[in-house]
């Protein structure tokens, strides 16, 4: 008799526990990274594909190490953009790493290249700088670090495709004026320091006209040697 009651009680208790667990889940946000990065997506797109605002960059498919470095830099204020600095201020490293991984693993298609507003001559100058550089002025080609396909390299070098000309020129300007910096040796600051405003316009415009390659993923670490040391890409 007693045993039967006990068994019944256990069944009821188990059912109640099951019920409340189910209610709990139903009444909670999804336990996913997608739900946790909803604060990011109105500006960067649901899969990190970017939005119509030309100054908000695409995140999807960039190397996780690059994205993580940017999150750390925004959190500490080294990279300055107050809305980002504010959002990240009190988030711990492992969480920022998980956010970086999340967007690195999303592969939304690259947008069709934007029609360019600059002249053919300017585009030609941009192409020359991006693909050959200008040894006389100590400017390496973009492709020498960002890859022949401009898709970047794991873990720290970002691809340059799918970004709008306004964003690229704003970032190059920030490197030139020292408001965007990276770990020493800060290679991008050196490179950007050699660029004129006309160079920036030309390179940004040409990069924004590039179509997606067959494989837009960043190449594995060590695929090619960098022309000089870079704090963001340890050897």
């Amino acid at each position: 008799m007693f045993a039967r009651y006990t068994a019944l009680a256990i069944v009821i208790a188990a059912l109640a526990a099951f019920d409340s667990a189910a209610a709990q889940t139903a009444n909670q946000p999804p336990d996913t990274m997608a739900a946790r990065v909803e604060a990011c997506t109105p500006c960067h797109g649901n899969k990190g594909e970017g939005t119509s605002d030309v100054y908000f960059p695409r995140l999807g498919g960039k190397p996780a190490g690059y994205l993580y470095n940017q999150l750390l830099a925004f959190r500490s204020g080294r990279r300055k953009y107050p809305p980002m600095n504010y959002l990240l201020e009190f988030l711990p490293d492992p969480y920022l790493e998980a956010m970086a991984e999340y967007f690195a693993n999303e592969h939304p298609p690259l947008p069709p290249p934007a029609p360019s507003e600059v002249s053919k001559e300017v585009l030609a100058q941009g192409e020359l700088l991006a693909t050959r550089g200008d040894a006389g002025r100590n400017i390496p080609a973009c492709v020498s670090c960002h890859g022949p396909g401009l898709t970047g390299m794991q873990p720290g070098i970002p691809g340059l495709l799918g970004l709008r000309a306004n964003y690229i020129s704003a970032q190059l300007g920030a490197w030139r004026y020292g408001t965007r910096t990276a770990k020493s040796p800060d290679c991008m600051q050196v490179v950007a320091g050699h660029l004129t405003e006309a160079d920036v316009t030309a390179v940004a415009a040409w990069l924004a006209t590039r179509a997606a390659p067959a494989n837009p993923a960043p190449v594995p670490k060590g695929t090619y040697a960098l022309p000089f040391g870079c704090g963001s890409q340890p050897n």
Binding site: A39, C40, P83
Partner: peptide
């Protein structure tokens, strides 16, 4: 450790 966030609407 992994709080949910709210986007800026500015």
């Amino acid at each position: 450790p992994m709080p949910y966030g709210m986007p800026p609407f500015a």
